[in-house]
């Protein structure tokens, strides 16, 4: 039997995408907002535990990636299934990190189960991270009108990774 590959649309749901985020006063407010989205789709069992995992990762090094992008992520046993939340804030706001941080408008939050059973899930998270290196893909994310636009941009640009 052929094993089915995990697709991007399985780990990022319409309910975990917010394209109209208002500027956030603090990173903590942002994290609470995104964690609530992940909690509401059942991706995580405990908001508090996941927040702790996110901050543990923050303490290891900056998750601001430049070019307006931040990728906070947490690996924890409270994560029930691999998931991504995505927020876009057209006005932008400051994302603080231990070194400096920067202005962000695109934020991806990755929820990674403590016991990562399948490499397929890591692969899909890593493919998203790799796509963010391509300005043409990032432009599409900035122009996307809805969830479907985002998924179709990923599908359109994914072949870049296999060249």
């Amino acid at each position: 039997m052929e094993t089915k590959k995990v697709t991007f649309s399985e780990i990022i749901k319409p309910e975990t995408v917010d394209l109209m985020l208002a500027p956030q006063d603090s990173k903590d407010d942002l994290f609470h907002h995104m964690i609530a989205m992940l909690f509401d789709v059942g991706a995580i069992g405990s908001k508090e535990e996941f927040l702790q995992a996110i901050y543990e990762r923050e303490s290891l090094g900056p998750t601001y990636m430049g070019e307006g992008i931040a990728i906070p992520h947490g690996k924890s046993c409270t994560v029930r299934k691999t998931a991504i939340a995505f927020c876009r804030c057209d006005e932008g706001f400051y994302y603080h990190t231990d070194d400096d941080g920067g202005e962000v408008d695109l934020i991806f939050m990755l929820a990674i189960p403590g016991e990562m059973s399948s490499n397929d899930y890591i692969r899909i998270l890593s493919r998203l991270a790799r796509l963010l290196v391509y300005p043409e893909f990032v432009d599409e994310l900035r122009k996307a009108k809805d969830y479907d636009d985002i998924i179709s941009s990923v599908e359109q640009y994914e072949p870049l990774l296999d060249q």
């Binding site: 991270a129 790799r130 290196v133």
Partner: peptide, 16 residues
């Protein structure tokens, strides 16, 4: 540190 995001982005950025 966690081997999920930065290592892949950095690799892709260098290749590109």
């Amino acid at each position: 540190a966690t081997g999920i995001a930065h290592s892949y982005m950095a690799a892709e950025a260098l290749k590109k």
